Amino acid sequence: MGTSTFKNIEYQTIGNGMPIIFLHGLALDRVSTRNFFEKDSNLADFQRIYIDIPGMGNSSPTSEATADTIFSNLVEFIDHIVAGKNFALYGHSFGGYLAQAIAYHYQNQVSGLFLTCPVCIANKEFRVVEKHKNEYIDKVFVSDNEKFFNDFESMNVLISQSRWSSYQELILPGLERANAKFLNKLQHNGYTISFEQKLQNLAPKTKIQLVLGRHDHVVGYKQQMKAFLDNEQVSLTLLASAGHNIMIDQPEYVYDLFDKFTQNLEIEM
């Protein structure tokens, strides 16, 4: 359960079995993936590898603030931690963008790819995004972290006390530890991976589950569906009352879909 460091990447490994590497969203850290997925008791047969992407959490920035450099660092990490074994990937938002790049690079090793609200096109000017909305489930009592409540409302579709608690548990640790200077450079100078056009050209055997929010105002859903539509290994799920923070808006759906995804991986093992 302890943490380890490989070069500039801090990570945590839990359990044994086929490795699943979890990649969080931009400005978050491994808390957002670990604290969410470790509540799922169906992952006991897998080795879960939660990492802080460079420049976020406890991982130091890369030498250059580009997605290509971050990707290169992740490849070094995977060569070290996974070696030649088959593995699966989870990625959210920017982590989903990197997960696609990794799956493209390791075509003979990646058995499955589970993506929630992934970046498909890094350049925001070319994204087709949706209009955000709020659906208020119950009144929320804000006693702590009041300054972040507006951000919660601007990112989540479903607003409730339990979801506000989840936001504070999963999102705030990363926001408070991210290297803002590095991420600003990344977004303005080098957010696009040089082989972005090839990201969906994955091995025919790679199982892919895509989970999207209908009201995602950050990355949208239409371009992702179009990009993956012709891949016969892709399962597409579009959730109505969900936005970019889909794991907080609709946790039960995400858990259920992830369990089905891992069951398919187990059949292969």
Rank of each mutant, 00 (worst) to 15 (best):
A83K: 10
G25V: 09
N42C: 00
H24N: 03
Q47I: 03
K205Y: 02
D259W: 03
L257H: 14
S162Y: 01
A44H: 07
D249S: 08
S166D: 15
L239N: 06
L202K: 15
Q200S: 14
G84C: 10
E268P: 00
F77K: 04
P173A: 07
E196Y: 11
E252G: 07
R214I: 15
N16K: 14
K131E: 02
N156L: 09
G112I: 04
L202E: 14
E76F: 01
E38H: 05
S4F: 04
S166P: 13
I14V: 15
M56Y: 01
E232K: 15
K133F: 02
A103D: 15
D256G: 14
N86Y: 02
G15P: 07
I78V: 09
I14G: 13
L172P: 04
G243N: 12
S154A: 09
V119I: 11
A83I: 02
N8E: 00
R214T: 15
A240Q: 13
S165Q: 13
I248V: 13
I9P: 01
Q200M: 12
Y191I: 15
A180F: 08
I137K: 10
H217C: 05
G95F: 07
S160D: 01
L170T: 00
Y255V: 07
S59M: 01
N189K: 15
D52Q: 00
L257N: 10
I70M: 08
M56P: 04
I121A: 00
T116P: 09
N201R: 03
S143N: 11
L257C: 04
V110I: 10
E196R: 08
Q233P: 10
V82G: 06
D259T: 11
L199H: 13
G17H: 09
N123L: 09
V254R: 03
I9H: 00
E252W: 06
E125Q: 07
K139D: 10
R48Q: 10
K260A: 02
A180P: 10
T206E: 08
V110T: 13
V129Y: 05
L23N: 15
T13M: 13
L175D: 07
S194R: 14
E169I: 05
Q100I: 14
L89F: 15
Y104P: 05
R177M: 14
T237L: 05
F149Y: 08
K85P: 00
N156K: 03
N231W: 06
S41F: 04
A203C: 13
M155D: 05
H80Y: 04
L172G: 07
L172F: 11
S4G: 02
D138L: 06
A242C: 07
A122W: 01
K222N: 10
Y11W: 04
D259V: 03
R163G: 11
S59W: 00
T33C: 12
K133V: 10
G57V: 11
A83W: 02
K205F: 08
K207M: 12
A44G: 10
I9Q: 01
Q107Y: 08
W164M: 12
E76N: 10
V119W: 05
I159T: 00
G84N: 08
Q187H: 11
A242D: 06
L74R: 09
I49Y: 02
P204D: 12
P54I: 00
Y221C: 15
D79E: 12
S166M: 14
L172V: 11
G112D: 02
